[in-house]
C-alpha cells in the first residue's frame, strides 16, 4: 500500500458518501444516471465476489463489502425510495453498446481463461466505461448541481490516483498489471473534459455549466 492508492481509495469512499449525502439532503436522485449506478453494481459484484474464496487483508475485505453494499443501496434508493425523482427520458445511453464490447474484450484479454478470471477482466473494462451514461446525461442537460459535480470529481480522482500508484509499484515491486493499467488510463481520460470544466467553474465558485 502506498499513499497514492490509499488516497485513491479514500477518494472513492468519499464519492459514495457525497452521493448518499446528495440524495438524502435534496431528497432526490435528479441528475444521477441510474444506468451508471447499475453498472457499478455489476462491476463491484463481479469483481469483489472473490471475498468468498480469497483473503487479501482486512482493509481489502472491508472495502469490498462496503462497495458492494453501498452500490446496491444506492440502486435501491433510486429504484424504490426516490423513484419519482428519476427521469429515465434523459438517461438514454445505450448500455448494450458498452457491455457487449467489454464482454468481448474480457474474453480476449484475461489472465486465465476461466469463468472468474474473465469476470474479473470484464469488471475492469466495464468500470472504465461505466461513467459514460452519467457523462452523456450531463452533456444532455448541460448543467449539474454542485454536489453532483463533487461526487464526479471524487470518483474520477480515485482512478486518476491509481496511475501514480501503478508507476510507484512498477519501480518498487517491478510488477505491472497491463489490463488494469490500460483500462485505468482510459477511465481517467474520459474524465478529462469534466475535470477541465470542474476546475474552471465549480472550484472558482461558479455553477457547473457546459458550453452550448
Amino acid at each position: 500500500m502506498n499513499l497514492f492508492r490509499l488516497f485513491g481509495d479514500l477518494s472513492h469512499l468519499a464519492s459514495i458518501f457525497i452521493l448518499l449525502h446528495k440524495i438524502r439532503t435534496t431528497r432526490s436522485c435528479r441528475g444521477i444516471s441510474f444506468k451508471t449506478q447499475a453498472l457499478y453494481v455489476a462491476v463491484f459484484v463481479s469483481r469483489y465476489l472473490d471475498i468468498l474464496w480469497e483473503w487479501v487483508s482486512l482493509y481489502n475485505f472491508v472495502m469490498k463489502v462496503f462497495f458492494i453494499a453501498s452500490s446496491c443501496f444506492i440502486l435501491y434508493l433510486m429504484k424504490m425510495k426516490y423513484r419519482p425523482t428519476h427521469d429515465p427520458s434523459i438517461d438514454t445511453f445505450r448500455v448494450e453498446f458498452l457491455v457487449g464490447p467489454c464482454a468481448l474484450l474480457a474474453l480476449i484479454f484475461n489472465y486465465k481463461f476461466t469463468f472468474t478470471e474473465v469476470l474479473w477482466s470484464l469488471s475492469i473494462f466495464l468500470e472504465s466505461l461505466a461513467i459514460l451514461p452519467q457523462l452523456f446525461m450531463l452533456q444532455r442537460t448541460g448543467e449539474a448541481e454542485t454536489i453532483t459535480t463533487h461526487y464526479l470529481a471524487a470518483l474520477g480522482a480515485y482512478r486518476a490516483l491509481y496511475i501514480p500508484n501503478w508507476i510507484y509499484r512498477y519501480f518498487s515491486e517491478g510488477v505491472v498489471d497491463p489490463i488494469a493499467v490500460t483500462a485505468g488510463l482510459v477511465q481517467t481520460a474520459l474524465y478529462a473534459d469534466f475535470f477541465y470544466v470542474y476546475f474552471t467553474t465549480v472550484i472558482q465558485g461558479q455553477k457547473f455549466e457546459l458550453p452550448a
Binding site: E54, Y111, N165, V175, D177, P178, A180
Partner: peptide, 10 residues
C-alpha cells in the same frame, strides 16, 4: 517487469 494482475487492489 513482471506482467501480473494486481488483485490486492480495489
Amino acid at each position: 517487469p513482471t506482467w501480473a494482475p494486481a488483485k490486492d487492489e480495489l
